[in-house]
């Protein structure tokens, strides 16, 4: 087990390096630069800025310098936000996104799993059909539509919930709901199909023959076997959601990492692009390792090599 984790971490480092390298060169191939704006900058000022951030040097040299600094934990300063380091940007914005994203994933899990189970157990009946229709809508409707509908209904018409910022717990309800919508629907469908599969298994009949009550057999036998696909989905979902959604953050004016990530790309804020990409990649890889370990705990048949 320990050896396995070590091996995975080794592979992770290589993967992150590859992603960083690829991003670095692709980003520089895109036309434009951080200091090009509508307002014309004098060539002298431009040269001075480029010299300050080392952009005048050959690309390969820039790359070596960047990787060297990154290995020392220095991800550089933002090119557009004066006086802020990339590390400090991530450190202030990530907790905001993580809180909303984490809550959304928690909600999706806590609602999606029971809904999927109920749906599977009432297969073909009215309850199942209703849940399936809602879940299909949840997958099909894009998040900006959900955001707008939520905002219009609860924020504007009913006036129950605040529409911007993150002042109190009330502010969290709408963005978390909007973010949780898709994963809830997805988990419901995932859970339903895997539950249906498990309920038809012979060992469920064995449990019944033993005299296990329906309720107990559901928790002891069915759920443990059916949850595996959800666990698989949960890891990447968590990594993806806690790093923030550009759309939801924009609509509810939340100062999160998602907005920062997209903003840095449009601004050609090279250091922030690199920093956020590496951060997201690291998180994603880490979550996948965690998922594999959880797998092993949930299913004894899986061997980690």
């Amino acid at each position: 087990m320990f050896k396995y984790i070590l091996k995975r971490l080794g592979i992770a480092v290589v993967t992150i390096w590859l992603i960083a390298t690829l991003t670095f060169f692709l980003m520089n191939m895109v036309p434009g630069g951080p200091f090009l704006s509508e307002k014309a900058v004098s060539p002298a000022a431009m040269a001075a800025l480029e010299a300050k951030y080392g952009l005048d040097k050959p690309l390969l040299q820039q790359y070596v310098t960047y990787i060297g600094d990154a290995l020392h934990g220095d991800f550089g300063d933002s090119l557009k936000q004066r006086g802020r380091t990339v590390t400090s940007i991530i450190a202030t914005k990530f907790p905001v996104s993580a809180r909303i994203g984490g809550l959304a994933v928690l909600a999706a899990f806590c609602i999606g799993v029971p809904l999927g189970c109920i749906s599977a157990m009432n297969r073909g009946k009215l309850g199942d059909s209703i849940i399936i229709v809602i879940a299909t809508c949840g997958i099909a409707v894009p998040s900006f539509v959900i955001c707008t509908v939520l905002m219009y209904t609860f924020g504007v018409r009913l006036g129950w919930l605040p529409t911007l910022g993150l002042g109190s717990w009330k502010h969290y309800i709408m963005p978390v709901t909007a973010l949780a919508f898709y994963p809830t629907a997805y988990i419901t469908r995932l859970m339903r199909s895997s539950m249906l599969d498990v309920l038809g298994q012979d060992y469920m009949r064995t449990a019944r023959a033993k005299g296990v009550s329906q309720f107990a057999s559901l928790f002891k036998h069915a759920l443990r076997n059916a949850i595996l696909p959800v666990v698989t989905y949960l890891g990447p979902l968590l990594a993806y959601t806690v790093t923030g959604s550009f759309i939801v953050e924009k609509i509810f004016t939340i100062p999160g990492l998602g907005g920062e990530f997209i903003g840095s790309i449009t601004n050609r804020d090279y250091t922030v692009i690199m920093g956020t990409t590496i951060f997201l990649a690291t998180l994603m890889i880490l979550m996948n390792v965690v998922v594999d370990i959880v797998y092993k705990l949930v299913d004894p048949r899986i061997k980690l090599k």
Binding site: D202, V212, N225, P300
Partner: peptide, 30 residues
Amino acid sequence: REMQIVFQDPYASLDPRMTVGDIVGEAIDI
């Protein structure tokens, strides 16, 4: 307790997530 069954397929009729001890023990518990 009095009427039991041994199933045809020994591969599918045992819960893969339980140890053999628990599979046998579950009926004792119930």
